[in-house]
Write a protein that binds this DNA or RNA. Structure first.
Length: 421
DNA sequence: TCTGGGGTCCTAGGACCC
DNA sequence: TCTGGGGTCCTAGGACCC
């Protein structure tokens, strides 16, 4: 059977989530900021029209914001995560196989839908998602993931919000009008290198010999070229594999100089990693701890350092991870610096099932710790993250990133539920 | 004053093994 | 002058994604 893949992409997702609970923002320019209120990471179409670029630092767009009366909102990731689950669950109604690609995108296998019905089916999906979740989406359909991405690019420009790209003549026309940097998998570096080779459009790349691409670039780009030709190289991954690396890091709301505050932040990150490890039933063998000062600060020496701490035993235990992370911090902390950010990465992650217990570990003790952490996770799941914490995280989080313009957690906190008058 | 957080894959080169 | 052949594992760096 010929594969048919749909890419469903939520329009300006974070902005749309905010609009569901603040309908007065509809039709107005709105942006959502990154952590610490740093950059614009989501823009409504009205904000894009004003010239606000993706990733633009807030302080550089203050003029546009003022003149264009742009509504600025701090990010609220627990709200977006919750809304994302609602969208994905709705999409499951429409296909037996679905790959959740990111917080706001999913690939659907639509091979069972007759070709003539695809467009109206896409329109139906779009209508139901909007009705059930309040989130507007665009849907692109093609014979490969990369062509579904291309179709989605076109769908966003179309009033129907849907686009089917299956006939060779339609695909060719679309590819001739698509520039290299708009292709999924081609970033600024490769598009520059490709244009030096005389290639200008997606159609040029599709017509180039993939072996030649592989020689000059690598296998990844040669796959992209094949996918543009309609030859599937990327399969639908319905079950997301466990993460091979996990990271927890944040910039500080204010510069931090004290070791004690850094210790609290590092403990928070180690604890957050341990929870993620337990969630995906993995163990880590080593942590990487890093700190750095503000690299944009003129007149101050930039200091950045990191160190890897092997754990005595593979672990997912919060206490063990906190202990290791703090010992790493002690090695790299330099007195007198104004720190801007810290974080912890879990390296060498293995499935908990596959790692045997060490002879030097007390089995009883391990079981006791396991049930303690299970209760810990259960409480946090029931009463909200951070309801129970390890004391070394501290209770005040003075290092917390800035989020001055955050909207209420409409769907996760009882006391912040929207009121209907 | 103010510049995010969290991932993936591939390749080349070095260390080491028999 | 000429210095084996074949393999694994790890790491750093570079590209990409949302």
């Amino acid at each position: 059977m010929k594969p048919i893949i749909a890419l469903v992409d939520c329009n300006s997702f974070f902005v749309s989530c905010e609009r569901v609970f603040q309908p007065h923002l509809e039709g107005k320019p709105v942006i959502v900021l990154s952590s610490n209120d740093g950059c614009a990471i989501a823009r409504s179409s009205e904000a894009k029209a004003l010239g606000i670029q993706m990733g633009a630092p807030l302080f550089k767009i203050q003029d546009i914001i003022k003149k264009g009366h742009v509504k600025v909102i701090s990010s609220n990731f627990s709200l977006y995560g919750d809304m994302s689950s609602r969208v994905m669950e709705t999409l499951r109604q429409f296909s037996p196989s679905l790959e959740i690609y990111s917080i706001d995108e999913a690939f659907l296998n639509l091979s069972l839908v007759p070709e003539k019905d695809l467009f109206s089916y896409a329109c139906l999906i779009r209508k139901i998602v909007k009705l059930w979740t309040g989130i507007p989406v665009s849907i692109g359909i093609g014979p490969t993931k990369t062509l579904a991405k291309v179709a989605n690019h076109l769908a966003k420009k179309h009033s129907s919000g849907c686009c089917v790209l299956l006939r060779p003549d339609e695909i060719n026309t679309a590819l001739r009008q698509l520039s290299l940097q708009d292709i999924w998998g081609i970033g600024p570096q490769w598009s520059k290198k490709l244009s030096h080779l005389g290639l200008k459009t997606a159609s040029d790349l599709a017509q180039t010999d993939p072996h030649k691409i592989r020689k000059i670039f690598n296998v990844v780009l040669s796959r992209t070229a094949l996918e543009l030709k309609g030859i599937p190289c990327l399969s639908l991954e319905e079950i997301s594999p466990p993460k091979k690396n996990l990271i927890s890091s944040r910039s500080f709301g204010i510069p931090v100089t004290s070791f004690e505050i850094l210790r609290q932040a590092v403990s928070f990150h180690a604890s957050s990693l341990a929870q993620k490890l337990r969630q995906q039933q993995s163990l880590t063998c080593a942590l990487n701890v890093f700190i750095h000062t503000n690299r944009f600060q003129k007149g101050e020496t930039y200091y950045s350092n990191a160190c890897v701490i092997p754990l005595p035993f593979p672990s997912q235990d919060t206490a063990a991870l906190i202990k290791a992370a703090i010992s790493g911090l002690e090695k790299i902390f330099k007195n007198g610096s104004f720190y801007k950010k810290t974080g912890v990465t879990a390296l060498q992650i293995y499935s908990a099932e596959k790692v045997p217990h060490s002879l030097f570990q007390n089995k009883e003790e391990i079981e006791k710790r396991k049930s303690l952490l299970k209760a810990f996770d259960k409480l946090n799941a029931q009463f909200g993250r951070g309801s129970v914490i390890f004391a070394s995280e501290g209770f005040h989080k003075t290092w917390r990133p800035k989020a001055c313009l955050k909207s209420p957690s409409f769907t996760q906190e009882w006391n912040q539920l929207p009121r209907v008058k």
